[in-house]
Simulated scan of single mutants.
Amino acid sequence: MPLQDLPETTALVVIDMQQGFTDPSWGVPVDLDGCRTRVRALVDAFESARRPVVVVRHDSDKPSSPLRRDAAGNAFFDEIAAVDPAVLITKTVNSAFLGTPDLDGWLRERGIDTIVVCGIQTNMCVETTARMGGNLGYRVVVPLDATTTFPLTGAGESADAETLIRITAVNLAGGGFAQVAATADVVAASMREEKP
């Protein structure tokens, strides 16, 4: 289903585009370079349309994490480091809605009712933020090709990254949390003027 025009009351939420995700301990991501390129395309489109860009950074409190505050991996990829965000949210958990400052309050104060969520990891912080956004009553759009993730093992099972991305799409769309879209469609919709 084609993405409808995004209202002017839409913000882009860029999740955890941090250098620590190149650490080999994560495993091999799905098309990290493509994710970075598409996230930057979304940022450029939103900046051109004068729509807010929210940047989220994971400040891990785990001593071994490459995303911990004092680690080089806490820094953003170059594509995001150059962005002057409308607000920077820092968090220690999966959801950007549980970060500082309060994302929900920041969005509501500005009359924002739609969020486009992209970044890393698809099935972790992106999906959790999208689900919580849906629960809070926002219209949520996830350009799935502007996300990436890594293989995962747990409860005696394992899944490759491609499978996890597909499952996230099913969870979000099938569960009614978010509309799953392609970056190109979101870029096109963000550049169209809202119809009267």
Rank of each mutant, 00 (worst) to 15 (best):
D59G: 08
Y138V: 01
D33V: 04
V141A: 07
A41Q: 15
I120T: 07
N135K: 11
A81F: 00
T163P: 00
P196E: 14
G154D: 06
V141H: 01
G134Q: 07
F177M: 09
V141Y: 03
S60K: 13
V13W: 06
D102K: 08
A155I: 03
R192H: 13
A71R: 13
E162C: 04
P85N: 07
M1A: 10
H58K: 04
Q121D: 04
G154P: 02
T148K: 01
E79M: 09
V30I: 13
M132C: 02
I112F: 03
A45L: 06
E79V: 11
P63H: 12
P151G: 09
G133V: 05
A75E: 15
G105P: 09
S48W: 00
S158F: 06
R69C: 04
R68N: 15
L136V: 10
L103I: 09
D31L: 11
P151E: 06
V116R: 01
T128Q: 10
A41G: 08
S60T: 14
H58V: 10
G27I: 06
R131M: 12
S190M: 09
D5L: 13
R192K: 15
G20L: 04
L144R: 09
V117A: 10
A181K: 11
Q18N: 08
T37G: 02
L88K: 06
A75I: 00
D31C: 11
C125Q: 10
E157K: 13
